[in-house]
Amino acid sequence: MTLSKLTKPWEAMSYGFIDGSAKREMRRKMLKAVAVPGCQMPYASREVPMARGWGTGGLQVSLTLVKPTTRVKVIDQGADDSVNAASIRRFIASVAGTPTTLDTLEADLIQSRHRIPEEIMCEDQILVLQVPNPEPLRGVQPNMSIARQMHADADYGRMWLQLYEQIVRSGRVMQGASYPSLVHGRHVMTPSPIPRWDVPKLHMSRHLTILSAGREKRIFAVPPFTRVEPLVFDDVPYQVEDHAGLTCYRSGAKGFFMNEIPQDDGSSVYEVSDSEWGVKAIRAKDGEDVIQGETWYKDGEMPQ
């Protein structure tokens, strides 16, 4: 054994920034996450050159998965041009030499914060969702050790009670985004702060979804063809945001999740939240040759 055998040629950083040992740990944990859908697997979560809470969990997954031919799309709030999405996309491209795209259909890997695109993802695509708080029980139990025990016991009584109390008090479940959902009939998970509109897109989908919380150091997954069922009572059905009837003032697209833009006169207009879907609608309207993929929602309804 010599010193030179212990070392390696100097390089400023490994391919994809994170080193081999970090990648192997990510790989091992991703496999376990797929094997037990919806169950939070702890991982070391290395520090990356971005602040915690800014997508470091999703980034570590993306950096582990990419190779120079992986076409990467990054969105934040549904938009490719959001500044942090632009920053993450630029970082991945610069450390891994990946091509990037704005088109959902062209992407091999989509890293997203708070949205799932409107076009249906196919089996060769992977969705990586950034997760701020991986623990659906945090609201009823902030202590992580106790919450973990509750998952182990499938003890979700307090979660149900909380939903019930909301219905009694407000006439409906008040959960906005991050709607707690039962995965494969066993683990309750947070789907990350996607709107309720997007949760059904995880149910029995064709693509693999990996959810990763860098700051909280937890990773979990929803494999294809896996049941993801929002927690609801039999007599109070799951209710997505009332956006089915809204029309995008820029693209004319109708029946998709919208951003509300307040106006000076006190009213609001709406624009489609999936920015690239909006762009496609505009280009199609202008007579351009554009491929619009099939969407999960049709006429504002998600087929069962």
Partner: peptide, 8 residues
């Protein structure tokens, strides 16, 4: 952009 090692 760093290049990929064989191991990678």
């Amino acid at each position: 952009t760093p290049s990929r090692s064989e191991e990678e």
